[in-house]
Every structure is written in structure tokens, then in C-alpha cells.
Nucleic acid binder design. Sequence first.
DNA 1: ACAAAAGTGTTCGGACTACACCCATGT
DNA 2: ACATGGGTGTAGTCCGAACACTTTTGT
Lengths: 273, 273
Amino acid sequence: MSDEKDFLDQYDPSAFERPSVTADTVIFSIDAELRSANYRKLEQQKLTVLLLKREAHPHQGRWGLPGSFISLDETLEEAAGRVVRDKTRLQDIYLEQLYTFGAVDRDPRTRVISCAYMALINRADHGGAAAEDENTGWFELDMSADGRELTLLHGDERLIVPVERLEVKNGRLVNSQLQAGDNQLAFDHGQILLEALGRLRGKLDYTDIVFNLMPDEFSIGQLQQVFEIIWGEKLFAAAFRRKIADKIEETGSLVKDKGHRPSRLFRFKHSQG
Amino acid sequence: MSDEKDFLDQYDPSAFERPSVTADTVIFSIDAELRSANYRKLEQQKLTVLLLKREAHPHQGRWGLPGSFISLDETLEEAAGRVVRDKTRLQDIYLEQLYTFGAVDRDPRTRVISCAYMALINRADHGGAAAEDENTGWFELDMSADGRELTLLHGDERLIVPVERLEVKNGRLVNSQLQAGDNQLAFDHGQILLEALGRLRGKLDYTDIVFNLMPDEFSIGQLQQVFEIIWGEKLFAAAFRRKIADKIEETGSLVKDKGHRPSRLFRFKHSQG
DNA sequence: ACAAAAGTGTTCGGACTACACCCATGT
DNA sequence: ACATGGGTGTAGTCCGAACACTTTTGT
């Protein structure tokens, strides 16, 4: 091994053609819709994702996920964290690597490999975090009843992400052909979003990641709603309450001013052994 | 969008410094040890992983995972498949993307990002697949009782992979410091191997991936042993039998010549609704 | 009073645990 | 005969699904 140093000194990093690598982030948040419909009804919670309108080519004018080319002196996770910080002004956010997308032609410019991350925040909790503007929007996710189509809503904008039964090869999903439709996301970001949603759904019931989406204090009803919109199915309140009972603890405060019995507020109880 | 084509024509791919990207593969297999100890005892199954002795710098002489730099005209999965094919002569193998490792200094040459894949095969089933030689070895995995240390055995070779309680940050494991010890794997391949083992363990009980490790026909006892060596715990035979009963079907044949009641052979029953 | 949600009690059935027990074999 | 694993039966236990029911509020 004495000559390893010599080897390294002579090593030419440009010997092979290299791909570009980006860190793209799917930033989920929960938003509460202010429902005036019925003073008794709960305000409906919504699952939202942060999208940016692309100002440059390629896919100029389309909505896409926040992302960035990684620089050589930062890890993938650091790059993803940087993207989240730049777009939301939030730090120390839940961040999880999702999957790396490597279809040869997923970017028309050149070979670009995308390492996708999922971030979870609660927007209401952090004041003006990630305020919206012309080119920045939080899109509400709505899965169609048959689960074949995901709709993204933001003001008048309305994007459709087809869930074409994900092709599975060797047990792992294969990059499917990019859709060229009009109200579509840029690149393969629709696919990335679906992968993120799938991951979020799957991890809901065997991890505690939901609480990254919740405010510090929340009612059981709110929490149940979050499960319901992510899973797309109604849950039985009694069963739900008992199931999560040992993951939360009372804060002591109540929420009044609703047209029904006041609800106790809870917080996430960390580290129960 | 009319000028998107112009933009692409003028795009200069060398504008940003790019990392190298490799596809590294953790190829697991099951091997049956020929036990002469007791004619009644079952032949003990072993979980093995394919390692190569590095012939070039860096980490020359160390054992590491099979891998390759990706070329610009193949997907990540194709690159991983190519590596598996080159090393084992096997095609159409179960392949699953694991995780992408992006620590800045994980490779001393230059910035190298590793997209890790896990492959599952049954070596016995495919004759001389991945025969061993001087620089190619199937290493038996042995997790210590306390789960703090993974030992890799192959002939006289004996590598130790410390399981330093994986640092978790934001719910995802963080690349830990590279170990510089002697009987260690090259690069961060120990960490990659641990991640693969964790994934395999986790997926055992809610997917059907085990059957990728099994021969076409197997006894329930064999199958149970595979679960046991991967999970590192004994299972109750009666419960196990019932649990997997609806995933397998009888082939009709029996295995005699053992010092006990002959066992029926089963095969994986695909696609039960 | 009433609608809506908060919250508790209880039953039912299915899944897993643990143990007991028989079967079939090669030496 | 005996050790070893193959294979079935069965009682007990735990957990979630489902339903019934009470509590508490603002209008």
C-alpha cells in the first residue's frame, strides 16, 4: 500500500465521462382549509407539496420540484437540505432519501441523475415559511377515488399526474416513459412525487413521521384527518384513538369555540421504550 | 417553448463540475453447508455475499463489493445488472435499489457517488454461477449474538464489520466515519452491506423476496432456516409452517435419505390474490 | 333541541403463541 | 430403539374492527 499515495497523485479524474447529479426534494406539508361551510364541521386538512414554476429551459414554464445540482464539496443530504432551506427558510427539517432516478433521457440537456429526497414540515407552525409567489406554489394533493390519477391544485392551476400502474420489474419500479401532456410536471417529477407519496403512505403506520407534519399541539381528530388524507380512506375514530394513544401525551389545553365538545390537545411523546 | 430546441443545442454540459457515479451491488445468496457432523441433522444453510479482492488502487488488496462506474448511456439499474451479469454470469436476477451513498470523501480519488443495489440469487440452483477464485469469494455472514458486529468468513479470511449503532439524523442514517482498520472492507462498503442486510431483513416478512434466494424446490425446513439466519432468531416450526402455507404449493416430490421423516418439496406459488 | 365531534366500553373474530402429540425415517 | 425433523391439532392470548353509547359544546 506504500504506493497508494503515488497512485492518487497521478489519478486523472477526467478520465471518464461523468453524469450530472441533482438533489430534488419533495416537500410535503399540511395545510388547514378555512371552512366556513358549517360552523360545526372541522376545518379540513390538506396535504400539500411545494412546486416551483421553472423560469429557464428545459421545461420552461412548467411546475417542477425544487432541486439543485450538487456541488462537489457537499453530501447528497446536505444538498437536499440546502434546497429546502433556500425555498422554505426552514432548517433542521425531517429529510429522507427516497430513490435515485437514473433514466438516460430524463433530462434533455445531458445525462442527469436525480437523487430524490422527501421533506416533511408543518407550514402553519412556521409562520411565513415558504410564502407563495408567482413562481412558488403549495399544491394540494387529491387522489382520485379509483387511485388512477393524482390531481394537484393551486389557485387556478390544475395538474394531473397519471398513476399508470407503476411498472414493476424485478420487484422494483422501473422508470416509465415520460408523459408529454400539457398540464404535467417537468421532467419525471410526477413519478418522483408518486414515489414520495407511496413512501409517506407506507411509513405512516410503522414509524412516527406523521408528527413532522403536525403542529406542536394538535387534537386527535386533526391527527386522524392527516392519516385519512394520506391514505385516502376513512378510519374509525375509536380504533384510531387507541392505536396512537401511547405515542402522544396530553398538553392540558383544550380547544373550545367549536360547535361541539372541546377537544384536548396532545403532543408527540418521544422515546417511549 | 419554441426556443427550447435552440437552448438545448447551445447547452454546454461541461459548465458544472460533475461527480463520478458508480453502481455497487450487494449480491446475496444462500449456500448449504455440507454437514457430516450428524447424519440426522439438516445441512445448515448460510447467507453469503459476493466480494472481490481489489486488484487496483485505491484500497488495493482489500475485499469490496462488485461495482462499476456507470456509463452515460445506461440507466443505474442497467449498470447494476451489468455488474451482476459480469460477476455471476446470471441474468434476470432480482435487483433492488438500496440507497445512494454520497459522503464527500468516501473515495480518495475524487468525488464518487455510489448508488447501491441489492441482488438475490440462489447459487446452488445455477450450477457454476460465480465460481470462486483468487480474487472472488462468497463470504458467509455471521451476526454476533449482541448484534454489534458482523463477521464475514471465507476460507481463512475473516473480515469484521462493526455495526456501530447507525447514527440517525432526521430519521435517516447518516454516513458514518470510514473505518481504517485492517480486516475491513474497502471504502464504505461495510456500511452498504449493513444497509442491504437491514433491507433484506425488513422486507422478509411483508414481501416475497425470500423466494429469490431459494432453489426452485425446497422444503419448509430449509425455508425456515433461511428466515432464521437472516433474522438471527429461532422460529417456531408450527407457526412458521402455517404462516407461509398460502405462499407455497406442493410439488409432489419428497426428499428421502435423511435420518428422519421425508419432507415434501414446495415451490413458490406466484400471484395469489 | 340539535348537529357535530370528543371520548369510553364492549363484543367479536381472526391471527399469532405455545405446547402437545403423532408420523416417518436411517442407523 | 432412538434421535431428528416433518407435520397436525388445539387451547390461550392479544389486537384490531365494529358498534353502541355517553359527553360537551355553539347556535
